[in-house]
Amino acid sequence: MHILIAIASLGGFALMAGLLLSLAQKKFRVEGDPMVEKIDAVLPQTQCGQCGYPGCKPYAEAVARGEADINHCVPGGERTMHQLADLMGVEPKPLEEEPTAPMVAFIREDECIGCTLCIKACPVDAIVGAPKQYHTVIADYCTGCTLCIEPCPVDCIDMLLKPELIEHWAWPLPETERARIGRERKENHARAA
């Protein structure tokens, strides 16, 4: 008799818990994969495709699924790789490619034929223009992804180094003061030459 009561009560509990859990799953269902969101949040959003995926979001999805490695984001550099390693709980890995200095696209306007192909290619809508009109890049929005270079039929787009602004300058790591003076002298000579 006792054993029947035990089975019935435990069974009842299990049923209740099951019902609650299934309700909770319906009610608190999370749209999308939270991991993908977290990974996407640390990616630099250049949408450059250098990782081999068509954008930052697809790469985030691939990393979350465990298909892509954490060290493919070139513009993100060391910092992004470490953040991905933290998120995924894996060991940091050396970067596949060192990030280059930040660049912006620049259209040589007198050569532009107004074909709009670069406008279509730009993942962040940073190129303005209309058919048969000059196009130009809004430098403040350009992520330097280089996706506009390929489609241009007249090769009138250059990638330029982002100009160094005095407000954006940051102190380097301390070097010995002597080394610093030596480097600065060299720079000054180079500038004078």
Partner: peptide
């Protein structure tokens, strides 16, 4: 301080790029 300022700037730029994309 400089590195943190650059990180903050990069984050703001990424956010803007995300919004645009």
């Amino acid at each position: 301080k400089g590195q943190l300022a650059q990180i903050r700037r990069a984050e703001a730029f990424a956010e803007e790029s995300r919004r645009r994309s």
